[in-house]
Design a protein around this nucleic acid. Structure first.
Length: 190
DNA sequence: ACCGTGATGTTCT
DNA sequence: GAACATCACGGTG
């Protein structure tokens, strides 16, 4: 049921595609919350101008250089956290951004954390779902094979690919079809 | 429905 | 000091 380390130790594009239809879970003292992953983006290390790891190892990107199955969280625009899954093996700095979930468990808790009531508004964006699941910057480096945050098999969903969102700064890399979405799903970020 | 804008703090130049 | 893998809100249609 819970995805094993080997699931993550593959190339980022495969991991990003196969994460669609899996269930992302956090189990914190306030309760358990989860959602079906319906939107991801792959960030492919040294060949990808959009990736944080493109310019090499820094304090922030060092987690990319470890093996797959650990969490990379970062602060964006000074106020939102984005949750990523590290992919591939040691020294191959790839990661998958989780961009949207279809809420499943702990909906009341997610509504409280978000201050929103509409199901559609809970997890339809990377900052939104991070808040709904109670992810904080302390999750940096968390093990997805642990108990606090993990991913389970759930269902198979048809997948569509598109360009990634808000990476216009990345030149040619902005054109790559490295965003994966559950086809015709109502809970996407756009 | 679709803009436009302001909020906010890290990271890297 | 600029840029940033975003969100919520208030305006106009």
């Amino acid at each position: 049921m819970k995805l094993p380390r080997e699931f993550y130790q593959r190339d980022g594009l495969t991991v990003a595609r196969e994460l669609i239809g899996k269930k992302l879970v956090t189990n914190l003292p306030e309760g358990l919350t989860s959602g079906l992953i319906v939107e991801t983006e792959a960030y492919m290390g040294t060949i990808d101008a959009a990736a944080h790891s493109y310019r090499g190892k820094t304090e922030r990107t060092k987690i990319f250089y470890g093996t797959g199955g650990f969490v990379y969280v970062y602060l964006i625009y000074g106020m939102h956290l984005c949750t990523n899954v590290v992919a591939n093996v040691e020294d191959v700095p790839e990661a998958v951004l989780i961009r949207a979930l279809e809420p499943v468990d702990g909906v009341e808790l997610m509504k409280r954390r978000r201050g929103k009531n509409k199901l559609r508004e809970l997890c339809s964006g990377p900052g939104k779902l991070s808040k709904a699941l109670g992810v904080t910057k302390n999750f940096y480096g968390a093990d997805l094979c642990g108990e606090e945050i993990f991913i389970e098999t759930c269902r198979a969903l048809p997948v569509t690919t598109t360009k990634r969102i808000n990476v216009n700064y990345a030149g040619e890399a902005a054109e790559y079809l490295w965003r994966f979405v559950a086809s015709n799903n109502a809970f996407l970020s756009i």
